[in-house]
Design a protein around this nucleic acid. Structure first.
Lengths: 215, 215
DNA sequence: TTATTTTAATATACGCGTATATTTTATCAA
DNA sequence: TTGATAAAATATACGCGTATATTAAAATAA
């Protein structure tokens, strides 16, 4: 049997340089995005070249293309990480569905960006990115799932709303949350009312219609 | 006096190659945008290189930089031409201020894009343009003036609206008009209701609030 | 007519992202 | 141990937009 196992090994053994392991591949990808993130946040996406990233890592520029399809994909991966972190913080407050939960989601959402202003800039303020490059990123179901959590919570308190109305409420809610986050991040010197207070209005706005409809 | 004139000429005469005349300069700029427009509409902005435009014109690539600061400025100039044409058609229907005038402006606005679908694609669907490149274009007062005409007409039928409300109505009205134009241009195979009919709803939407407020 | 000057036009070069070609490395077969 | 093989990594090349250097053209001064 041992000899059979050996024979099996020999039958399946492949000549040539073996592929790197999935683990090694992910380690390298993480190294690339880590270095790129630092440089992008420091100098801006457009001002950081592939050659510069490679030099910082200590490999050839074309090596990066073994791990990412294009320069923009390194940025998209960073965006994915940022949204994964956001989703991770949204989930724990999404298991309840009432106004309070929506308020808490709003809090978590805004607080996330306030605690990660550099990530906010990386995602929403990157220079040198075209609209179609962003769209490819947004086509990823994982990215949209975070917004679906909020939609589900809004749906729970307005069960009679059709899909279009829910989409409008979600879009408004997110617009308001982004406005709050954006103002605090980009014009931090201005004495804004606290996010806690402002988010209450956002929740009220998407709740009052429900109440009006219910009347 | 003749001698004085000669002396004046001599005093103001300048050695060296004279600058090209303003007329010649504009002629060349028009030639550049004309050739570029054809190529951009045929192959898309991103797929048309500066070298290719120059070759079509019969000059060196760097010659183009004597007439435009950058490749994107050739496109911006084309956008400006398109909006100038639109403005030219909007003005005649803007001298009256009532619902009918707003409706007619809507008709003119949508009809303009339907008659110039290639221009529509050039302005709103150019690939390879970043958001900041578009923003520089929009900062031009001449571009915004076309929208101000519509704002003024809306203001005339809702004199009590504050600036923010007017801006919201304008934005909605333009969103609706663009939606109508966009659908007809990009999904022309679908049997859309006529723009004439759809625009009525857009006008109603920004009028009904006024009536509600007036009640 | 030639020299000088100034501008227009062109030539060359650069760094960019990435396509393609080549070399290096890590394995197995003989 | 050497040869063969296949993947990883690197080297080279390409066209891009545009910065910089150089040449050509058109004028005036001498």
């Amino acid at each position: 049997m041992n000899q059979s196992a050996e024979t099996n090994e020999k039958l399946t053994a492949k000549r040539g340089r073996p592929s790197i392991s999935a683990e090694k591949r992910e380690t390298t990808r993480a190294r690339i995005t880590s270095v790129a993130r630092t440089l992008f946040q420091q100098d801006g996406y457009a001002n950081v070249s592939v050659r510069r990233i490679a030099k910082e890592i200590g490999c050839a520029p074309m090596t990066l293309y073994s791990y990412y399809d294009a320069k923009i994909d390194i940025l998209r991966s960073l965006w994915g990480d940022v949204f994964a972190g956001l989703l991770e913080e949204l989930k724990p407050v999404s298991n309840v569905s009432d106004h309070e939960a929506i308020y808490k989601m709003g809090l978590v959402y805004v607080d996330y960006w306030l605690r990660h202003p550099e990530e906010y800039r990386l995602v929403f303020m990157a220079k040198g990115v075209t609209q179609s490059q962003v769209n490819v990123f947004l086509d990823n179901p994982e990215i949209l799932s975070g917004y679906e959590i909020i939609t589900e919570a809004i749906s729970a308190i307005a069960p009679n709303d059709d899909a279009e109305t829910l989409k409008t409420k979600l879009d408004f809610f997110l617009s308001a949350l982004h406005g709050i986050a954006h103002n605090h991040i980009t014009m931090s010197g201005y004495p804004w009312c606290s996010p806690e207070e402002q988010i209450k209005y956002a929740v009220m706005a998407i709740s009052s219609e429900n109440e009006a409809e219910g009347s």
